[in-house]
């Protein structure tokens, strides 16, 4: 009990004094996860729209594949990326293993199916509403996708934030492909795991508070967005 209290006091001090290690790790976490979220969104938002408005033979298969990917344990994603990027692996020449790039790749693989699935759902509903109008107005396929992405932007932002929330708290995959190297690939979650193991509760707790704060901010944003989505404050 005493450990926890002194730990919390120390954690507070680290945060209030803007401890350099704390700042460095937090910024790296943000850098990795923001990059992964942007890349995953660029892939999955158009993919979601495409899946919603096109009826092609492989559509069901693609959707089933995305759903299956969503169920993939992050640790296994980490393992696969590790094998691909390891020196003897097919992408070994890139030398990406144990870099933040490898961590971004793993996170992109983990959250792309999530963002694509949520945005596909949202755009499919919007398309059901808009279908007759957009056909009547003689829109091109690209104009339809543009209208759906733009008018569905709040739902799509919600999807991206859900992906961000998932990625920022992930530990297994990035531990494997990033290696948790000090000053290189150490991020909030891997640092918490390490410091806890070392019995260094103060730093672990301080890092934990920051992680929680980030998660809370994202969830608040999600909540506000889904509220304004339902009302008409576009």
């Amino acid at each position: 009990m005493n450990d926890i209290l002194t730990g919390m006091a120390e954690a507070l001090r680290l945060i209030l004094t803007l401890d350099p290690t704390l700042i460095e790790i937090s910024l790296r976490s943000l850098e990795v996860t923001v990059s992964a979220t942007i890349i995953a969104s660029l892939i999955s938002l158009p993919l979601g729209a495409w899946l919603a408005i096109n009826r092609f033979r492989a559509r069901r298969f693609v959707i089933a594949f995305l759903n299956a990917l969503m169920g993939l344990p992050p640790v296994v994603v980490g393992l696969l990326v590790y094998v691909l990027l390891s020196r003897s692996g097919p992408l070994g020449v890139l030398g990406l293993l144990f870099t933040t790039s490898a961590m971004i790749i793993a996170q992109v693989i983990i959250i792309t199916p999530i963002i694509a699935s949520i945005s596909h759902q949202a755009i499919r509903e919007l398309w059901a509403d808009y279908h007759d109008l957009l056909i009547s107005l003689n829109t091109t396929r690209w104009q339809r996708i543009k209208a759906l992405l733009w008018d569905g932007r709040r739902a799509l932002l919600t999807a991206s934030l859900a992906g961000f929330g998932r990625a920022i708290g992930e530990v297994g995959a990035i531990m494997i492909v990033g290696g948790n190297i000090d000053h290189a690939t150490r991020v909030l979650t891997t640092a918490i795991a390490l410091e806890t193991g070392k019995g260094n509760f103060a730093l672990a707790l301080a890092l934990g508070f920051i992680l929680i704060a980030l998660a809370v901010v994202v969830n608040l944003a999600l909540h506000l967005l889904s509220k304004t989505e339902r009302s008409s404050l576009w």
Partner: peptide, 28 residues
């Protein structure tokens, strides 16, 4: 196509404000 228009029994509204909704066909 652009010289005919259709008004549906249940109006199909875009998630936009009034002026942008009306401007939409012109932007196309």
């Amino acid at each position: 196509r652009k010289l005919q228009a259709f008004v549906f029994q249940a109006p199909i509204l875009m998630r936009r404000n009034v002026v942008d909704s009306i401007a939409y066909p012109l932007l196309l």
